[in-house]
Design a protein around this nucleic acid. Sequence first.
DNA 1: TATTGTTATACTCTATAACTATA
DNA 2: TATAGTTATAGAGTATAACAATA
Lengths: 146, 146
Amino acid sequence: MATEKPATPMGTVSFRLGLLGVAQDALYSARLTDLDLKPKHVALLCVLRLHGAESQMELARLLGVAPSLVVLLADHLEGLGALHRVRDPADRRRQSLRLTDAGLRLLESATEVAAQLDREIVAGLPAAERAALSNALDRLLPPRAR
Amino acid sequence: MATEKPATPMGTVSFRLGLLGVAQDALYSARLTDLDLKPKHVALLCVLRLHGAESQMELARLLGVAPSLVVLLADHLEGLGALHRVRDPADRRRQSLRLTDAGLRLLESATEVAAQLDREIVAGLPAAERAALSNALDRLLPPRAR
DNA sequence: TATTGTTATACTCTATAACTATA
DNA sequence: TATAGTTATAGAGTATAACAATA
């Protein structure tokens, strides 16, 4: 009684995961407009908060995006006062990005927005299924993103 | 022991769902290049196969995209011989999109690509968790997309 | 006048490539 | 010469608005 051969991609987990995730991303993005953030900015803040990063290059690798995009994301966040760039004295080519207190508060606000989505969206799921979903996401997310 | 207040959006289901889903969509898109399709084309084919649709407008509503995008998607699929447009004789403004045999075979190929991703991706999940994930996706996907 | 499909246009996102400063 | 960061440019994707045909 495992998965039978599905008739369409809608019968697969990966396709439905893509559909739902893309919709989720768009919804979160819409809810972030008041904070003047996009999900990618939030991802960058998360990495800084949870890992820290030695350089923008490392950040690009961790986020899985081009280094040039990190520049734009960091520019925007710096403009919001959420972080500042500090030159590495040992290698002046490098800049470390450091969260400010305002950045931490911004991240907290973004967290609350996501938590609200959770309440709206997983409200319909039984507790066991919600936990299983959360576990599955943990396992499937590429380690670099965690 | 329910969900404690998460410290970052990474602690929420919705944010991780967005990250994973967007990555999934990109991966599926990359695997579809040989078929000359994008996930949105596949979604359109799925809707035609599973529901049928009376008009392109209805399709736009079901897919949650702008009508002008349905035109482009259908143009491409028509160019591949996957469907043809037939004018509704009762209302000549409307065009019904009908899957051809080639379209059905194309959808089967796209299904196999997604099934292969499933094998690669959910391979690491215990059966119970996989089933729970599949169930959760079913419940969370907006009904229009199913 | 309202609706379907289409076309034209513009905007967002992000990558690639070129460039600067530092090593 | 190689690397970190930046800037310039280009392409993909998709929405909005204008338009044509039909009702």
